[in-house]
């Protein structure tokens, strides 16, 4: 049945809803086709993320208080958290990339947490989104690496500490792992978020059966707790890997 088109899903289903339905991109107004400019539910939740970030980072800090309010404390905490990460992992000369890394971190964190609201749409569960994020990092690292280091950037693939006969083999492995980076970088985030949400939906589907429903509800609660953790950890992991890759661009060679 899975080979059939989606139109068949509705009729065949024993489950009252399909676990993957929550990820469907729909136009927000009307039922028309989704063009590139259409305002969809993805647009809505991205806009909400922007508003939330604006509220936290701009409105909450508008008083510029020396003794911060709660909101300002959180904004400062986020600032310090990402700034320290960039400085510690990518090095002191990478602080120029700090606004960029901060943008990625704030967007992913807010998209993940907004996606945990019931009935919401999780933008970061889509490969379209995470692939763009990961490719942006990949291209930044590659272009900046070549701009700053020139051909020395290729030293990243030439492991000079290894014995000479091994080096070409290692170079191939390094090259492959370098190009797999954006793949794993993007799929890790989308996969984690999607998997968690889908599992919650699967349990929610079982909740309709009276006998299983208590177990199901407990399981949903537990999964939700795990997802809250995952939402933050995946944002953290995405950001810290960005910093690790930036370090390669700034200081190639092992």
């Amino acid at each position: 049945m899975a080979t059939e088109t989606a139109a068949a899903h509705g009729e065949e289903g024993g489950l009252v809803f399909h676990p993957m339905d929550q990820f469907i991109v729909k136009p927000l107004f009307g039922d028309g086709a989704v063009h590139w400019y259409t305002i969809t539910n993805a647009t809505l939740w991205m806009a909400l993320a922007v508003i939330a970030i604006f509220a936290l980072m701009v409105l909450a800090t508008s008083r510029r208080a020396t003794i911060p309010s709660k909101g300002q404390s959180i904004a400062e905490l986020a600032y310090g958290f990402v700034y320290k990460m960039v400085e510690d992992v990518a090095g002191k000369d990478a602080v120029g990339f700090f606004p960029y890394v901060m943008t990625l971190f704030m967007f992913i964190v807010f998209a993940n947490f907004l996606g945990l609201l019931p009935m919401s749409f999780t933008t970061t569960s889509h490969f379209a989104v995470t692939v763009v994020l990961a490719l942006a990092v990949f291209l930044t690292v590659t272009i900046y690496g070549f701009m700053k280091n020139g051909s020395k950037f290729l030293g990243l693939f030439w492991v000079s500490s290894a014995p000479l006969p091994l080096r070409p083999i290692l170079a191939i492995i390094e090259l492959i792992s370098y190009f797999v980076r954006p793949v794993s970088h993007s799929i890790r985030l989308a996969g984690n978020v999607m998997a968690g949400h889908a599992v919650i939906k699967v349990f929610a589907g079982f909740a309709a059966i009276a006998v299983i429903s208590p177990v199901s509800i407990v399981a949903i609660t537990a999964m939700y707790g795990l997802e809250v953790l995952v939402a933050f950890i995946q944002a953290y992991v995405f950001t810290i890997l960005t910093c690790v890759y930036l370090k390669d661009a700034l200081h190639p060679g092992h």
């Binding site: 510690d88 992992v89 890790r188 992991v237």
Partner: peptide
């Protein structure tokens, strides 16, 4: 930080 990076790499393959 290293711990999380390690976990992330290990987990990525599971996600695959």
């Amino acid at each position: 930080a290293t711990l999380f990076i390690g976990i992330a790499f290990a987990e990525a393959l599971g996600i695959f």
